[in-house]
Amino acid sequence: MVSAYRPENLKEALLRRKEFRVIPFAGGTDLMVKGRRWSGLAPHFELPVLFIGHLGELKNVELEQNCLRIGSCCTLSYLLENENMPQAIKIALWMFASPAIRNIGTIGGNICNASPAGDTLPVLYAVNASVVLKNTNGIREVPIEQFIKGVGKTVLQDDELLKEIIIPIKSFDTIYYRKVGTRKANALSKISFLGLAKIKNGLIEDIRISFGAVAPTVVRSMEIEDRLKGKTKKYIKQIIPEICSQYSTLIKPIDDQRSNAYYRKIVSLRLLKHFLTKDIL
């Protein structure tokens, strides 16, 4: 038996969340697979399920002056169609799973699932996204890299729900995104790489680099990025070996059924090098 709650609104959902230990269920594209048993049997969940995917309050996209607010239960297809969505996010969403999964899977679900291979995560890290967590007492805002603590682990409390994602508005001249999967569509990432850059008067004004599926969480280093900012392309070319070796210590991939650590590491660094040499220079 599966117990499930289907609240009318966010307030009721948060009350349920406060009263009982439940599993929030948005699109279910990860949960249904995890709980799968024999066909014909309901999937198995450790706790009762709280449906939130239908809540209108979690399905809005609002453009404010300096940021974009994305409701956690917006489906990936909906975001792809949304005219306010930053190009970098759209590029990642185009490569995300299959149309069928994008039609039901949500951005909040992809974040809370906290998979190393979650395909919205590298871009959310790169654009300095933060998440808004809400319980019956109020809200708190947490930067994405502090929200995700490890494989499948987040700081979401038992009484909280992920309400929305806040993305600061910022434009970039260069977007280099590569998802390396086993096939062209409907594949989980072996590696994903995102490089964003803004160049002004021959100098790197802003640069963001993130790697997915090559460590327990997304790899991004503000420290290394800061070293590149305000520098000329020529200078960056000279220090590429150093940059590669700095990232090399942060990239800690594993061998699994989809690829191996050696490939993941080498190719991540090759993608980085390609971005730094071919794409921005």
Partner: peptide, 11 residues
């Protein structure tokens, strides 16, 4: 080329 990329182990 794989220069700048220290291999983890021998291929």
């Amino acid at each position: 080329t794989t220069e700048h990329v220290p291999p983890l182990r021998d291929p």
